[in-house]
Simulated assay, not measured.
Amino acid sequence: MEGSKQERMLEIFFRGLRGEDISIQKLAVQYGVSTKSISRTINDIKAFLADHRELVGNTELQYSHRDKCYRLRMDEFLTNQELFALIEVVIGARAFSKEELLLLTSKLKAFTTTDDRAKLSELIRKELYHYTAVKHDCESVQDMLWQLVRCITEKREITVEYFRSDRAHTVHRLRPASVMFTDFYFYLIAFGTDGDTEKPLYFRVDRIKHLTVHRRKFTTDDAPAFDEGLLRQRSLFMWPGKLRTIRFAYTGVSVQAVLDKLPTARVIDRIGRTHIVEAEVYGEGIVMWLLSQGPWIKVLEPQDFVETVKEKLTETLSQYTETTV
């Protein structure tokens, strides 16, 4: 009898963890006991939570007089608003396969109440139905990410079989340093084991076909230390290249959108409706973004970068002046 009481208490507690409404009347019918027995079990749970706050934190069973049921409340739980925002971000990122996404959203929804779970499911139903993931070369982005994270923390050298953007198959031996996410893709940032070992290299995680983990470990002397946060601010476009400070004039409708896109950007001057913006950026990917802004942006400095942008514009214009396709 004592064992069944303990099992019942654990079952009711875990029902609360899953977001279920705890109704004394309904549970009494399900377990075939009196409502007084269920009330005593709930009181035991409440007493345990109150006596072990150092272990469970601010966790309690709260009674809803309107719905006539108990609900488990934990500070560590995500709220429904937080869950909805998180799921929307995961869907919008398009970084996972549809199967991985469905599993993730299913697990996240388990932390909501039964009623809220139905509302949340209805809100995202059409988005999940029409969801299209980016094409992956690896079997599972999540599994590949976790393997890379383990190699980074254990400082183990790896060899990756990789498909470049032109679909050429390449093999690289690397010292992995960090993993970052931007614009639909996860990226591995690593350093080579030969050649220029000080230069960071970028690899899309979903293009890693195979990963081999070596026994050989590396130290901070073998791979240069760097600030991941600062690198993220400067390397939004994950293209290799040198660090440079650029200036450009912006005449578009929202300079705030520019500042949001380039975390290192700041407005250093304003002439009428024209904002003069300065930013520190790595690589050549910034060129493509600047060109995507059309006539709203004019690059001012440095001069060699101005010439690079001019060349790209000339090449683009030639596509429309040639008579043959």
Rank of each mutant, 00 (worst) to 15 (best):
Q81E: 14
E11P: 01
C151D: 03
A85L: 14
C138K: 12
A265H: 04
D227Y: 00
D21G: 07
M9Y: 04
R66M: 09
K5T: 04
A85K: 06
K217W: 04
R175G: 03
K242E: 12
L259Q: 01
Q293Y: 02
L86S: 10
A118W: 03
T264M: 07
S318Q: 08
E76V: 14
L55T: 14
M9H: 05
G32F: 12
T41K: 08
A28E: 12
K217M: 13
L49H: 06
K310V: 07
Y31N: 02
K26S: 13
T182H: 14
L291V: 01
I22M: 03
V277R: 06
T59P: 08
I124Q: 06
A118R: 08
R216K: 15
A279F: 13
P240I: 03
D304S: 08
T59R: 11
R40L: 09
R207V: 07
I42G: 00
Y202S: 12
G32D: 12
G294Q: 09
D269T: 09
D67C: 02
D75G: 07
P263V: 02
E280D: 15
I22L: 13
G92W: 02
V33I: 11
F163H: 10
P295Q: 13
W289V: 05
K26P: 01
Y63G: 02
T182L: 06
D196E: 15
V90L: 14
R18D: 13
D206S: 10
V179Y: 10
A118G: 00
R73C: 12
L290M: 07
I268D: 10
I12A: 04
F14M: 09
L17I: 11
Q142H: 08
K26R: 12
L128N: 06
Q233T: 02
V306D: 03
S39V: 07
Q256K: 13
I24S: 05
F48I: 12
D116W: 04
I24A: 05
L61F: 15
F248E: 04
K109A: 14
M288K: 15
Q303W: 06
E60D: 14
A177D: 07
F184T: 14
Q147C: 02
K5L: 08
A133V: 00
K298D: 02
Q319M: 14
E301I: 03
Q25S: 15
G32M: 09
T316N: 01
K68E: 14
D67P: 00
